[in-house]
Write a protein that binds this DNA or RNA. Sequence first.
DNA 1: TACCTTTGTTCAATCGTTTGCACAATACCC
DNA 2: GGGTATTGTGCAAACGATTGAACAAAGGTA
Lengths: 344, 344
Amino acid sequence: MSKKSEHSTIHDIAQALGLTASSVSRALNDNPRISEATRQAVKEQAEKMNYRPNLVAAGLRTGKTGILGIIIPLANRAFFASIISGLERVANQSGYNVMICQTGDSYEAEKSAVEALLRARVEGVAVSVSAKTLDFKHFDRIKQAKIPLILFDRTMDEIGASEVVIDDRLGAMLATEHLIEQGCRRIAHFAGLQHISIYKKRTKGYLDALEKHGLSYDENLVVFGEVKEGSGDAAVNTLYERGVSFDAIFSSSDFAAIWAMKNLQKRGVRIPDDVAIIGFANEPFTELVTPALSTVNQLADDLGSAIANLFLEEINVKKEQRKPQKIVLMPEIIVRESSKRVIR
Amino acid sequence: MSKKSEHSTIHDIAQALGLTASSVSRALNDNPRISEATRQAVKEQAEKMNYRPNLVAAGLRTGKTGILGIIIPLANRAFFASIISGLERVANQSGYNVMICQTGDSYEAEKSAVEALLRARVEGVAVSVSAKTLDFKHFDRIKQAKIPLILFDRTMDEIGASEVVIDDRLGAMLATEHLIEQGCRRIAHFAGLQHISIYKKRTKGYLDALEKHGLSYDENLVVFGEVKEGSGDAAVNTLYERGVSFDAIFSSSDFAAIWAMKNLQKRGVRIPDDVAIIGFANEPFTELVTPALSTVNQLADDLGSAIANLFLEEINVKKEQRKPQKIVLMPEIIVRESSKRVIR
DNA sequence: TACCTTTGTTCAATCGTTTGCACAATACCC
DNA sequence: GGGTATTGTGCAAACGATTGAACAAAGGTA
């Protein structure tokens, strides 16, 4: 019983049945060039011997490891966690495993993550580009390896890879229009850093909505800069310092929205009656705060499964004629108490 | 330039330098049996040729794939996401990659996750056992493979594997004591399903704290049953139906705590002055609700890194004499507004 | 009977590394 | 100078699967 290895191999099965390894291999893979009788016998014996195919050996021979790589800034963030979840679920259904690498938003870590995945010979890589990444040579290595490269969330046109994203402009537009429908006319906007494309697009959506409904743009209503937790608090202060009046806020981030809400509540402002608020991302906490925060659903789980599906599609296309695709998911707004005014 | 493979191999390097693959291999691995001169030459050439070691080939030969597997119910849950994050970070520092499998709390999925990871020849597996898992044969296969098996969060003594957990009893005790220190004397408890060990331990901690401080146990103050989102709401109703008075709640789950808080707020109960509340888990939303929810920090990230460290330790121990270890992390309470009464 | 298919199996090479062993060249010791 | 270490490389066999090609046995056809 105690072999050299802990696992039985196709050779062991072959020996037990008086066959060769090749026949066993073909039997297990349902190759037509094998008789039904031996196929059965082999499978029974495999079961009996607790045979478990060695994907490493098979991978060496075939070049297919059945592994997908994903590179993200931080696994411990709701958005990325959902993407991983969706990606793994779909990939797994097709027999693929998922390997994850975190960059901590460091350029160096991103580079070494790419190398690590290529060394492991993954069959494809999905990346949310690190915020600090400015050059893209390390992604060329993925293309040189001729495996699918799929960007999501934070994409970079320069790389010329497939993309899976949501329509940020549309999401922002829907959010802003919703506020307008609630009767709001002076809608403030927390815009985020504009060199990051998703924030730029959200601001575009805000502006488009205003224009569509004939509202004029007042630059005093827009606060640029990071949209992290504390900044929502600061942004409200900024609006007050400017002495500008507003009856709604569309924040490009749920975090900033929540802190803005806290600030306003402290000031005695009623939400949504005095100021309606809507955020962006559908972070888990948004439905737990009081009042529950309206937001834009980023469909993170769907993004993950879309990535997996695109990968499965690309993997079967001849590498040479693989054209970068762009998949755009349509976000939906989730209306909760923070923006739902009583019917006038 | 266009070889059969997309990657250069040690043979290519060897050929370019008039050496053999074995020497190249030794040079790259800093084997002492190689001259400094050729070591240099090989490394330069490798760099020049964009050589990337094929971990699949090496893994086949050595049996070491450099991959760690983790099996969790759902990646998209803050606690597990943090564990993944901590695990990946530490594992990565030691050159390991992480492969994840989700079970969706299904027994079947758990079984096939084990198989998938074993087929991929991971060097160790960390598992949070699915809620539906009642027999453990599939874990035997991991032990048969003689690789480290580490259980976390939901553990099962029956399996006889190493464990990394937090001291749930202590966390609960600290939480309850904190409430007592705030002057609370009639502390309600949302206990969760008692056949799940973590909830049982938390209830134990609650009882221990009461006893330590000479408070008598009133069964009317304890609500058993699931501690999911809606159930916090129902639990408060139950307390009112029982007509029992209480000045604090220790909930074994943040979710139940938050819904309890919402319920109480609707009833006009002031928090923390009328009822102080503390939850368990330090879910991300706890600091965002109003009032911010006190809770017990589960140290998920630390759990993840502890798992990685234990793995790294066990991997170097002769498989035969690997003894199951148990690592217990000490949780801390995080006091926020929901339980911090003004100094009397 | 001779020849051609079809069917099922074996043979042997291959994927890219690692590694025990052999072996040559040089260094060391008395 | 003869014998023994020491040092640096090469040889060749793994690791466990896959796969094109060869081949034997059986069946089919004229």
